[in-house]
């Protein structure tokens, strides 16, 4: 197997591929959102799936829906993809003064399509699992196979995370937390798969983790009981910490926002870092292509071994991050429902 890889890498090192690798473009191009789904490049020609662009002009050009392949050549209906500046790699239009303006951009980008595909897979899996319970008397028999695995995972999340962290009325929160867990988990997993329909860096995108964190934030603060609000606005500390300068309430209110913020950044940074690491390891193969067959071959073996290791690590991280996000959400929810102090 390794020998094959070495031979393969030797073939790759032929003079015709001697082009400088743009490391920044390589790394960011793989992790950022885009208007088309790049699959591969054959003979210098990119093979990609064009995706629908949905934009509403801010300069009065109206709403437009068109395929993203029109943007490959440059401007289309006044819209183009910025190559540099504040809006690099985003669709921009020209304002009346010639400056770049970002229109309302609701395009089905790579991440949006990835989200749709992954969500469809998730919904399918869960509904198929639920269908088994609808057709069978679960009190009489236990599921086997895929349903059994799903039951095991659902039970694990419910028993280990939700029941323990939320406390008494966990049933009310269990659907949200389970959805969050499986949503993050499947998107993490699909992010590791290197080809279509995987490979979109979804949970490593800050917009996605921001929405997830906001869901937790609103769940915590809308459903929090009056003791929770009392602990924030009038905590049990010496009075001079609350009046005249409301030191503790201010800290508590900042805490309200730092909790979901930490959720957002943790998931985003972990997944993004994982993608960067794998990309970096694989980049070694291409960076050493000019150094001759021996060096390139040796380092390719190292890179592949490391890549396998990193992928295994990422599988672990995919699970751990879903677990951690769900657990911390459950903990925050649990904290938002304290019981009256019994004294």
């Amino acid at each position: 197997m390794r020998l094959l890889l070495v031979i393969f890498s030797l073939l790759m090192a032929s003079p015709s591929t001697e082009v400088d690798l743009d490391m920044d473009e390589y790394l960011y191009g793989h992790v950022r959102d885009s208007y088309e789904w790049h699959i591969t490049t054959i003979n210098g020609k990119p093979v990609s799936i064009p995706l629908p662009v949905i934009v509403i002009s801010k300069a009065g050009g109206g709403a437009h829906i068109f395929s993203s392949h029109h943007l490959e050549e440059g401007e289309y209906k006044g819209f183009s993809i910025a190559t540099s500046g504040k809006y690099a790699n985003k669709i921009v239009e020209k304002g009346s003064d010639g400056a770049q303006i970002r229109p309302w951009d609701f395009s089905i980008t790579k991440n949006v399509l990835g989200l749709m595909i992954n969500s469809a897979i998730l919904v399918l899996i869960i509904l198929l699992t639920a269908r088994w319970y609808r057709k069978h008397d679960a009190a009489e028999e236990a599921p086997a196979g895929g349903t059994g695995i799903m039951e095991m995972m659902v039970t694990m999340v419910e028993d280990d995370i939700i029941k323990d962290c939320v406390g008494e009325d966990y049933k009310r929160y269990s659907p949200y937390l389970l959805t969050a867990f499986f949503f993050i988990f499947i998107n993490n997993l699909m992010g590791i798969v290197p080809f279509f329909p995987g490979g979109a860096n979804i949970t490593g995108n800050i917009a996605v983790t921001l929405v997830l964190a906001l869901f937790t934030f609103f769940t915590v603060n809308i459903l929090g009981n009056k003791h929770y609000w009392k602990d924030i606005l009038w905590p049990d500390v010496p009075t001079w910490l609350k009046v005249p300068i409301p030191l503790m309430p201010v800290i508590e209110i900042i805490g309200m926002f730092t909790k979901p913020f930490s959720l957002m950044v943790r998931l985003f940074a972990n997944i993004l870092a994982g993608h960067f690491m794998i990309l970096g390891v694989i980049a070694v193969i291409f960076l050493t292509a000019k150094m001759g067959a021996a060096v390139n071959g040796g380092l390719t073996v190292v890179a592949v071994v490391l890549g396998v290791f990193m992928d295994c690590l990422e599988l672990l991280v995919a699970f751990i991050q879903a677990y951690v996000f769900t657990m911390l959400s459950a903990v925050f929810i649990g904290l938002s429902r304290p019981k009256a102090e019994t004294d």
């Binding site: 998730l122 919904v123 869960i126 509904l127 699992t129 639920a130 319970y133 609808r134 679960a138 009190a139 799903m150 039951e151 659902v154 039970t155 419910e158 049933k171 269990s174 659907p175 949200y176 389970l178 959805t179 499986f182």
Partner: peptide, 13 residues
Amino acid sequence: LAKWGFPMITDSV
């Protein structure tokens, strides 16, 4: 999932 998915599973379990 909250309507047709998870409650069905968790309740059955």
